[in-house]
């Protein structure tokens, strides 16, 4: 936390001299007087996997929604590769190369996995407003769509309505959909939520594959997932940044330990 330079131009270079892909300065969000996110500074280094952790109600999802335009910050700025995106709409931020997944599985129940991914590909390419053209135009995306569906292991279910898929399959489709946007920065909101151990391990592998050449920010409660994926960890507590650093530094931080123990003893 460096409260001093909120108004300064967003840092292009991290302290380590590496490029910052996604950055927030002095980010705050009030809900009717309740400050859900408080003065958060965040620098996500390009090419790294960055985990956001914290107890329930720490403001992780609110922060995600601020970063992707679903909520407008009360104060503060957000930049992507140095470009100010504060206050932009979600679809504009998507076009800046920032893609997100949702904590609660969020798909189009009447569309098939293939149609989902084609939509994602078209969303970035443009042309969705062409109501006078045949939907056969979407066939141009089919090959790429089938590749992505194969990548997440859904080839056999490519033509089933998403509403009929099992939970783990829906999570996999979420992932394919996010990659279909070919984003520079991926924000994954609890990619392993509600999964069994086997699915968790498969998801870790998948995220690792996706992360090659990309920047990933993810929220997760599962410390096994955080430990195996994250280069960098930011711990949130009551809307504030409690600690930042590598997994090992953060894990041994006394404030973090007491925050988590406090949470567990309440649970």
């Amino acid at each position: 936390m460096n409260a001093a330079d909120h108004d300064a131009a967003p840092a292009q270079e991290h302290a380590t001299g590496r490029t910052v892909a996604l950055s927030a300065r002095g980010l705050s969000k009030d809900f009717r007087g309740f400050r859900a996110v408080r003065n958060v500074d965040l620098d996500v280094v390009e090419g790294e996997v960055h985990a956001l952790v914290g107890p329930n109600g720490a403001g992780k999802t609110t922060l995600f929604n601020l970063l992707t335009g679903y909520l407008k910050p009360t104060e503060g700025t957000i930049t992507v590769h140095g470009k100010d995106i504060t206050g932009r709409e979600p679809e504009q931020i998507a076009h800046e190369g920032v893609a997100r997944s949702f904590q609660i599985t969020s798909l189009f129940d009447n569309l098939t996995p293939r149609e989902h991914v084609e939509l994602g590909l078209q969303g970035m390419a443009g042309g969705g407003l062409r109501f006078w053209r045949s939907d056969k135009r979407l066939l141009q995306y089919r090959e790429r769509a089938d590749e992505l569906i194969a990548e997440v292991g859904l080839s056999a279910l490519a033509d089933r309505p998403a509403g009929e898929l099992a939970y783990g399959q829906k999570r996999a489709l979420e992932m394919a959909l996010v990659i279909s946007l070919d984003p520079k920065v991926l924000l994954l909101d609890e990619p392993t939520a509600g999964m069994g151990r086997e699915d968790v391990n498969r998801t870790i592998e998948l995220v690792r594959q996706i992360a090659v050449g990309r920047t990933v920010v993810f929220v997760d409660h599962n410390m096994h997932v955080v430990g195996s994926l994250a280069h960098h960890v930011t711990v949130l507590m009551a809307g504030e940044v409690l600690a930042q650093g590598t997994y090992d530094t953060v894990r041994t931080d006394s404030r973090v330990i007491s925050a988590y123990l406090g949470e567990e003893s309440r649970a």
Binding site: P90, E91, R100, F102, S106, L107, F108, L111, L119, G123
Partner: peptide, 12 residues
């Protein structure tokens, strides 16, 4: 089916 998700895919 899901307006919020459609926005995340870049659709206005």
């Amino acid at each position: 089916d899901n307006p919020a998700r459609a926005r995340a895919l870049g659709y206005n």
